[in-house]
Amino acid sequence: MERTQIEALANQFIKGKIDFPETVNPRVQAITLRIVTDLMQTINDLKITADEYWSGVEYIGDLGKEAGLLSPGLGLDHFMDLMIEEDMKEAGLEGGTPRTIEGPLYVEGAPESKAFARLDDGSEDEQGTVLFMQGTVSDQQGKPLPNAKVEVWHANSLGNYSFFDESQSHFNLRRSIITDEKGNYAFRSVVPLGYSVPPNGMTQKVLGALGRHGHRPAHIHFFVSADDTRKLTTQINIDGDKYLWDDFAFASREGLVPEITMIEDAVDLKEKGLGKPYASINFDFQLLNESNSKVQGSEVERRRVQG
């Protein structure tokens, strides 16, 4: 079938019969028309059979909540970040801490602390490695930002997230930290482990057919925000992880892999009240000024779990 025939059919299917013109959303109509046209073209070009087509329909029906894993696994989350960055560059917004994907595991309503927070509930004190992370939040000119909000969440030492892993306490490894008068934040936690998509799940079904794994390196997520600045969505990766530069979600970026130092000095351990070495990470966040153009990506509207 020729492209012109496919375009005519798609127009007929999407725009040819409008029963309620007052309800038409032009944006939804344009996006749907393009998707249907391109999908029909793909079916035509690749000679997709009826069996294959209905297998795809059934897959979408079974995908359910794993859509939040398949999207980054196909690179679409990262692609959206690249689109946001293009818009930012066109608006003259460059520099600052690199952004990267949010992922599907944020939960709203984490407890809030001033300057310092302990993220973990102590349940992994024996088997996990204690982590202290600290730094400063500054604006585009490098000026420290007091009362900035640092929202942080990550997996435990088994690669599981609270709320999604019912064995963990509420808001374990999730906190909001308000920076002090010098723009400083700090927290105590445990070194996380990277997670994998469910081995028998719908996401791995596609990744396996593509010859790909579904593993993520150990990482820590952040939202960082302050008045008159763009909200930053980012994450840092734990250096030395096997999958550091082989993340199935394509979220690893230069500038987001800080050095991790093991502290063994007896004086330091005593000061922290610890009897074994702990890990330390220093990382500063630099936020960009909010522009009048309201470039997309500062606040992304999406469904998130309510705590």
Rank of each mutant, 00 (worst) to 15 (best):
V267I: 14
H170N: 08
S298H: 01
G183N: 03
G16C: 06
D239V: 13
L193F: 06
S138D: 03
G142W: 06
D19C: 04
Q204C: 12
D241Q: 10
P199S: 11
R34Y: 09
H219N: 12
Q286D: 09
I238V: 11
V191E: 01
V28G: 05
E7G: 03
R3S: 10
L256Y: 10
S162Q: 06
D51W: 03
T129R: 10
D268R: 15
A279Q: 01
M88F: 08
I178Y: 03
E259F: 14
G240P: 02
N200K: 03
E124W: 05
I18N: 13
R27P: 04
M40D: 02
K276L: 05
G128A: 15
E86M: 12
L63I: 09
P72M: 05
L46V: 06
T136S: 14
L46F: 07
K65Q: 10
L145K: 00
D247C: 14
S252I: 02
L274Q: 07
P277S: 12
S138G: 07
Y106R: 15
L39R: 07
Q140V: 15
K47E: 07
A115D: 06
A226E: 00
E94F: 05
W54K: 09
E254A: 11
T203P: 01
S252D: 03
Y106W: 14
D51T: 08
N160C: 13
G103N: 02
T229E: 02
E66A: 08
D139R: 02
G201K: 00
H215I: 07
P72A: 11
E124Q: 06
R253S: 08
D268N: 15
K205W: 14
R188C: 08
D121E: 13
D241V: 08
Q134Y: 15
V295T: 08
F116R: 12
I31V: 14
L232T: 04
Q5H: 05
D284N: 15
E90K: 13
D121N: 13
I178W: 00
E166W: 08
D265H: 14
E2C: 11
A8M: 05
V107C: 13
M88E: 11
H170P: 07
S293F: 07
Q41T: 15
Q296Y: 09
M40V: 01
E126T: 09
V36I: 14
E166R: 15
G159F: 01
N11K: 11
T100I: 07
S298F: 01
E151V: 06
K47P: 02
E126Q: 09
F248E: 04
E58H: 14
R175E: 13
E126V: 10
T261Y: 06
L288F: 09
D77G: 14
D120P: 04
A155N: 02
R118V: 07
E299S: 07
E151A: 08
G64F: 01
